[in-house]
Design a binder for these strands. Structure first.
Length: 416
DNA sequence: CACCGTCAAGTCGCA
DNA sequence: TGCGACTTGACGGTG
């Protein structure tokens, strides 16, 4: 069982991808961005390896306009060596990677130009994985596509167009239920007919259900479509954002809800891809909650969360400190539940200033007079509602960098 | 340097 | 028939 996250890592140094617009996509810019994005991918892979994360989705934007005539660079030859280096790091750490073309890659369209672009886009995704020398268990996840007023012929067209794909693309392609068009039942029928694996997505099934079967039921149905060469069965797991419309991914994984789900499926041998806004943060959380670890892990996590908690709730901050006192225990679920409680608190100016002062404590003796003046001005501006908290945090982050406070540089305080 | 409109894709639903 | 919504983060131009 591995738990992973998609595309981006938050709070990781030098881990931002770049892109460009079509009209700026000249050879020089495309080369530079590809080079940059490969370095970014490598940094994220190294972060994953260091944090015991064994499942990761690579962003489709890795090579800008990778499947468009706008980009006619032989990028996989130009960067062959870089792909091999990164691919080796992936393999050496035991990581499984995947890719997932977006909603605009539609293989079953009645418009043949659209289909042609979809085929080219799948070729591109496959070439990225091939260039990394990723095994056949590293999949490309695709939705079935549109309905066009006739589900039966639309599904038949998917089957026909699938046959047009190259063998190495076919070997990686898996299909997923979506939140509007094709329910898990229809995707399963298609997967069985084509003999390709099916990825079950729990939130899509909640938005676009068929019958009232449990997640566990559909997961075991999908399990039958995964052959040995395809690797472990994969599913997508996400939770509804309570304040946004149906189908929106939550900011973070609510640990209690996740553990309830996990209790039902832990007997299966699954890889779980999380789709969640805070990415690696919830991923680390879920890994910590489902594996045998010790309190050192929680103390490390606490070091990163503590000021983010303090600025929302001093009382929960104290409660967590007490929870971590007993070094023989590993109260992981309680720990994260308390953090979640703090993160959902409304912002309170007094608490926010208090936390900012705690962080300022790292610098107040070493800071220059100019920095001291600037900090107190930002604080009083914030109290008078003349500026926002972001400005204070931005300054504190800069100081952390300048004075080499690596403990603070890793803090999630600067992310929220 | 902060802010916000634009980009890029294909389909569906509603005038 | 045509256009807005859907989705996403970063670009890129403005003030």
């Amino acid at each position: 069982m591995s738990i992973g996250y998609a595309c981006l890592a938050v709070g990781v140094k030098d881990a931002g991808f770049k892109s460009c617009t079509m009209k700026n996509a000249d050879t020089e810019r495309l080369t530079e961005i590809t080079e940059h994005n490969l370095r970014t991918l490598e940094n994220i892979i190294e972060f994953n390896a260091a944090n015991n994360i064994k499942l990761f989705r690579i962003t489709s934007g890795l090579v800008p306009f990778g499947s468009s005539p706008v980009n006619n660079l032989p990028w996989h030859e130009m960067f062959e060596g870089r792909f091999l280096e990164i691919g080796k790091k992936i393999k050496d750490s035991g990581m499984r990677v995947s890719m997932h073309p977006g909603q605009y890659t539609v293989l079953n369209s009645p418009n043949d130009d659209v289909v042609k672009r979809a085929v080219e886009d799948l070729d591109y995704h496959c070439l990225v994985l091939d260039s990394l020398k990723a095994g056949q268990e590293c999949k490309i996840v695709l939705h079935v596509g549109g309905v066009y007023d006739n589900r039966k012929s639309a599904l038949e067209r998917f089957v026909r167009n699938y046959m047009r794909l190259k063998e190495n693309v076919k070997n990686r392609l898996v299909i997923e239920n979506d939140d509007r068009m094709y329910s898990i039942e229809e995707v399963l029928e298609t997967g069985i007919a084509l003999n390709i694996p099916v990825v079950y997505d729990n939130l899509h099934n909640a938005a676009n259900p068929c019958g009232s079967q449990s997640d566990d039921f559909w997961i075991s149905q999908c399990n039958k479509t995964w052959k040995a060469a395809d690797g472990k069965q994969k599913i997508h797991y996400s939770q509804q954002d309570p304040s946004r419309k149906k189908g929106s991914h939550s900011e973070f994984i609510r640990v209690k809800e996740f553990m309830n789900f996990y209790g039902q499926v832990k007997g299966e041998n699954l890889d779980i891809m999380l789709e969640v806004k805070d990415k690696n943060l919830s991923c680390v959380k879920c890994i910590n909650c489902t594996s045998e670890r010790n309190i050192n892990i929680l103390e490390k996590e606490w070091g990163r969360y503590k000021y983010a908690v303090l600025e929302k709730s001093p009382s929960l901050y104290q409660e967590i400190r007490h929870l971590l006192k007993d070094k023989e225990k590993y109260p992981v679920v309680e720990f994260y539940e308390l953090i979640e409680g703090a993160m959902t608190e409304e912002m309170n100016k007094g608490h926010a200033i208090n936390a900012a002062q705690h962080v300022w404590g790292y610098f107040k003796n070493t800071a220059t007079q100019k920095e001291k003046d600037e900090f107190s001005k930002l604080v009083s501006d914030f109290m008078r509602s003349e500026s926002d908290l972001l400005k204070i945090k931005r300054m504190l982050f800069k100081l952390s960098f300048k004075y080499g406070e690596s403990y603070l540089l890793d803090s999630y305080y600067f992310l929220f």
